[in-house]
Nucleic acid binder design. Structure first.
Lengths: 150, 150
DNA sequence: TTATATGCAAACTTTTTGCACATGC
DNA sequence: GCATGTGCAAAAAGTTTGCATATAA
């Protein structure tokens, strides 16, 4: 049914890891998720269907997926950490007012990697590209209201 | 003498903030610093000349400089936080083995901002661009040794 | 069957906060 | 002189760890 979920499960199996209900539950929250959730947000979401899961298990699963290169862990300056199942090079537009993060696919990012590898003898494995500012919604709002800003 | 230090001190004065010995000490550590130090590393460095300073004061000073846009606070996925007095758009090459961070000035980053602003109605204030991989030194080393990897 | 994973609670790390005292302007 | 800043210590927040029990393969 969900080929992306199947792909994640296969990757676990191929790595010699068990495919447990808890891991499936976390994967289901992540598949196709563009909201860049925190560990706790993932935990709260998973608990709806799987009330007995612990936050520690969520952290352990995210750590596992991160090590397998299937999830990016994004640490922000206010020490919030968000997770992104989208690991291809892309640009994150981070709104400083409402905290919303929008993904933008910009082809020039790939050439950036090539330029650096040619010029500096640095072997690129992955990347993280962020612009901070105001999203279109917040730009047009009259009054600034603090929110969950990453 | 140090015009960059003077510039920082002027910025504090213009913001209505006091120029204290503690703040000067932190600024001296930051001026021209390309090592992307952590708060504790800055604290340890400052203590050599200023043994009575507290870590809380270092944090408060960094917070102030961050709010004034004079320092970037870089949160990483292993919850280490590094500070960079270099606020112009540039690329950080982060070595996953030894933790070294190299600055690279790539002009295409500026056009990236323009492309995004034109295409997406997002108002860019600042940016953060990172490539993760192996630096030239670590590429040529035979055995992997874990280190302070951001 | 058995190596691996889970849940719990405690530990840990890093950063923030409240407050009395000190000090730059 | 007074608003602002400092140092201390305690609190907060987020993440990790140890271990007994449970379970996927």
């Amino acid at each position: 049914m969900d080929s992306e979920l199947e792909r994640f499960m296969d990757i676990l199996r191929e790595g010699g890891y068990k495919v447990t209900p808890q891991r499936i539950a976390v994967l289901k929250v992540l598949v196709g998720n563009r909201t860049h959730p925190s560990a706790d947000q993932i935990y709260q979401e998973v608990r709806k269907e799987h009330p007995m899961i612990s936050l520690a298990t969520v952290y352990k699963t995210l750590e596992l997926l991160k090590e397998m290169g299937q999830v990016m862990e994004l640490g922000f300056s206010n020490r919030s950490t968000r997770y992104d199942p989208q690991v291809d090079p892309h640009l994150n537009l981070v709104c400083l007012r409402c905290g919303f993060i929008e993904d933008v696919y910009e082809t020039s990012l790939n050439s950036l990697t090539n330029v650096v590898e040619d010029a500096s003898n640095f072997e690129v494995h992955s990347g993280r590209f962020e612009l901070y500012g105001l999203c279109s919604t917040c730009r047009s709002e009259p009054v600034a209201v603090a929110a969950g800003v990453p």
